Simulated assay, not measured.
Amino acid sequence: MGSHSEQVTIGAFAKAAGVNLETIRFYQRKGLLPEPDKPYGSIRRYGGVDIARVKFIKSAQRLGFSLDEIAQLLTLEDGTHCSEAAEFAARHLVDVRARLKDLKRMETVLSRLVAQCDSHRGTIACPLIASLHSG
């Protein structure tokens, strides 16, 4: 975005970062994004560093990191904490794998129940509903 990126309004900032205005304000309230000073009689301006930070936050969210975890990652972003960031990500990976295991189990159970529903058409008792009542 060149030098123009150093002097953008919050609306242009949000557009450049690919988020809506309220997302910017929310990140500021959460302490994930600094709120620039507002010069007297003027409006706040945002730069390329701010856009990169929002993109970092969104990328981390897509990997399943919570906002609190992202705040921790942001403290490690200066490039000198690679081993700490790797340990942090390894712990997150353990959680992701556990969730995947749970999702696979849920998929297996739901697939079985849907198949039972398909095989019991026309009966009064639905196997899915009955299973949920007994579980």
Score class of each variant (00 low, 15 high):
120 H>R: 06
86 A>F: 08
15 K>Q: 15
41 G>E: 02
62 R>T: 12
118 D>S: 07
129 I>N: 06
126 C>E: 04
105 R>A: 15
108 T>R: 12
118 D>R: 13
10 I>G: 01
30 K>V: 02
14 A>V: 10
93 L>I: 07
74 L>P: 01
105 R>F: 11
115 A>K: 06
116 Q>C: 06
33 L>G: 04
22 E>G: 06
76 L>K: 03
13 F>I: 12
79 G>L: 11
108 T>N: 11
52 A>H: 00
70 I>K: 05
124 I>E: 15
77 E>Y: 00
113 L>M: 11
108 T>V: 03
54 V>L: 09
9 T>G: 12
35 E>V: 07
69 E>W: 02
98 A>G: 10
41 G>H: 03
74 L>V: 00
26 F>C: 06
114 V>S: 09
57 I>C: 07
11 G>V: 10
82 C>A: 15
39 P>D: 00
19 V>L: 12
22 E>C: 04
135 G>F: 15
48 G>W: 01
101 K>H: 14
10 I>K: 02
53 R>E: 10
92 H>W: 09
12 A>N: 08
71 A>M: 08
27 Y>A: 01
20 N>I: 07
111 S>A: 11
112 R>M: 08
20 N>P: 01
51 I>Q: 04
133 H>T: 09
87 E>H: 12
38 K>N: 14
22 E>A: 03
43 I>R: 07
27 Y>K: 02
105 R>V: 08
48 G>A: 04
96 V>W: 05
111 S>Q: 04
109 V>G: 02
109 V>M: 08
98 A>H: 09
103 L>F: 10
2 G>T: 10
92 H>K: 12
124 I>P: 09
131 S>M: 13
31 G>M: 13
43 I>A: 12
85 A>W: 02
112 R>D: 15
79 G>F: 06
70 I>V: 14
49 V>Q: 02
83 S>C: 05
25 R>D: 10
48 G>N: 08
81 H>Q: 07
66 S>M: 01
122 G>T: 05
125 A>D: 05
128 L>P: 02
81 H>K: 11
61 Q>A: 07
102 D>Y: 06
26 F>W: 07
